[in-house]
């Protein structure tokens, strides 16, 4: 670390060495300690700007409503994923059901049309007591 490098990094990152590149932090602190007197002015100016910027630190609490909206969006997205799977399962069931119905229809015993006709009128006529006035 030399003065030129120190000034270059100070201009970019400010007076807080925590913001300086990992590999140069220790060397910078050592250089600053070794040249404290000659660096006083530039470090003070950098600290002043850091402090001015510090006034813009936003400490507003994050609204609960915003978190809730964002998490609701995640739930909806997850729901949409489940709906897709549910729709696929439903479609598979429908295909199976149609196939089963079609196959079952073929396998079921088929009565004569005459039998259907007779049975259709059997009960009403049996219940009818013949009272026509």
């Amino acid at each position: 670390m030399d003065r030129q490098r120190f000034d270059y990094l100070l201009e970019a990152y400010g007076a807080d060495f925590a913001r300086w590149p990992d590999g140069e932090r220790e060397a910078a602190a050592a250089f600053a300690a070794a040249h404290a007197a000659e660096l006083t002015e530039v470090l003070q100016a950098a600290r002043a700007l850091d402090a001015a910027l510090g006034t813009r630190r936003v400490e507003a609490p994050t609204p609960d409503l915003l978190s809730a909206r964002i998490l609701a969006a995640h739930k909806r997205q997850r729901g949409a994923g489940l709906d897709w799977r549910a729709a696929a399962a439903l479609a598979a069931c429908a295909v199976f059901g149609v196939a089963l119905g079609y196959g079952g229809g073929l396998l079921a015993p088929v009565a004569d049309d005459g039998d259907y006709f007779a049975s259709a009128f059997e009960t009403p006529f049996a219940d009818y007591d013949g009272d026509e006035g």
């Binding site: 201009e11 970019a12 990152y13 400010g14 002043a48 700007l49 402090a51 006034t55």
Partner: peptide, 22 residues
């Protein structure tokens, strides 16, 4: 680093009085 340095230089000029107050 170039962006940072140019940004900080401009801010330093614009905020000299604020920085001095602080």
């Amino acid at each position: 680093e170039s962006l940072l340095a140019r940004g900080r230089r401009a801010l330093k000029a614009a905020l000299a009085d604020v920085a001095q107050d602080l």
